[in-house]
């Protein structure tokens, strides 16, 4: 008995990386065991993406710019960013948020709370849907193609700065973090509501606003929308900031200044995105912890 006790590692810090690795591995093993499902899911999400792309190809037959500064390839880079972020969120967090609601309803959340590891970490990353990641690679290809087109065109080519390539993944990660925060907060409300099936719907309504350049939100309706979804629920920052980083010259560029409205210049946005990320993560953590103390655990 005594020897068994001393065998235990003295440091109580859980091995987060090892746990994450095992969960990723287990998810992959699981996904692979349903081969056809894996294949079909990959194909449907690819098809959905192609349809989207086709639609915008049509749109650009009739217009040169969707909004000031957003020509065909700028917008395709924007689209690629949307897909990139969505594919990461859908692969890593969407199945878990859904599962979380279900765990609350059935009482299986008990098991997550028993483990000597952060419950939010465990719940957020338990199951990964690898098939959603197929879009990730297509998005990278589309991004590379758009950037190549922008840098090699004759009129006003994009001056690609190494800084842009470094900042892009950072802001993509910020975008993912903001969407994740929103999603886990929404899912955590199921603890109070008992059931929250509108998760997907609500999710779709809100993220809808993140899918277009923020310049299109102008005027009596547009400006309040833009301000709300930038400062209150910062979903507009999610795609716009990284897309801007990669497609609009910021530093040392020719200075194609984009009219953002008063007080919303590029540098401000870059700073604000970081702040919004930290704020969202903090708020999500708070909501999650608060929700857990109200957890009642469904009957055995």
């Amino acid at each position: 008995m005594n020897s068994r006790q001393t065998l235990r590692p003295q440091s109580a810090r859980p091995a987060y990386l090892a746990v994450l690795w095992t969960m990723l591995r287990n998810s992959l093993v699981r996904d692979m065991s349903f081969r056809s499902n894996f294949l079909i899911e990959s194909i449907t999400s690819l098809a959905w993406m192609m349809m989207n792309l086709g639609f915008y190809l049509l749109v650009f037959k009739f217009t040169r710019e969707l909004a000031p500064g957003w020509g065909k390839y700028e917008f395709f880079a924007f689209l690629a960013t949307t897909m990139l972020i969505n594919s990461v969120v859908q692969a890593f967090f969407m199945p878990n948020a859904e599962e979380f609601s279900e765990m609350i309803r059935t009482g299986n959340l008990d098991f997550a709370l028993l483990k000597p590891i952060d419950a939010q970490f465990l719940i957020s990353l338990q199951r990964v849907n690898w098939s959603s990641l197929s879009n990730f690679f297509v998005a990278i290809a589309l991004l590379a193609y758009s950037v190549w087109k922008m840098t090699t065109r004759e009129t006003a080519p994009l001056p690609l700065h190494p800084w842009m390539l470094m900042a892009y993944p950072l802001y993509v990660a910020c975008g993912v973090a903001i969407l994740y925060s929103l999603m886990i907060s929404l899912a955590a409300t199921s603890i109070w509501l008992g059931r929250n099936q509108s998760l997907y719907d609500f999710w779709f309504y809100i993220t809808n606003f993140s899918r277009y350049p923020m310049e299109i939100y102008e005027g009596q309706v547009g400006t309040p929308l833009r301000l709300f979804f930038t400062f209150i629920i910062p979903v507009m920052v999610v795609v716009n900031v990284p897309a801007r980083v990669i497609s609009q010259p910021l530093i040392g560029g020719a200075g194609r200044d984009v009219a953002l409205g008063p007080g919303l210049d590029q540098q401000f946005l870059l700073g604000f995105a970081l702040l919004a990320t930290a704020g969202s993560l903090g708020a999500a953590r708070w909501v999650f912890q608060r929700a857990l103390t109200s957890y009642r655990s469904a009957s055995s």
């Binding site: 859980p14 091995a15 090892a18 746990v19 690795w21 287990n26 093993v29 483990k115 000597p116 465990l122």
Partner: peptide, 13 residues
């Protein structure tokens, strides 16, 4: 596979 995950979570040598 689940046991393996438990090993990681509980840090069992």
């Amino acid at each position: 596979e689940s046991f393996r995950l438990h090993q990681q979570i509980y840090r069992i040598p």
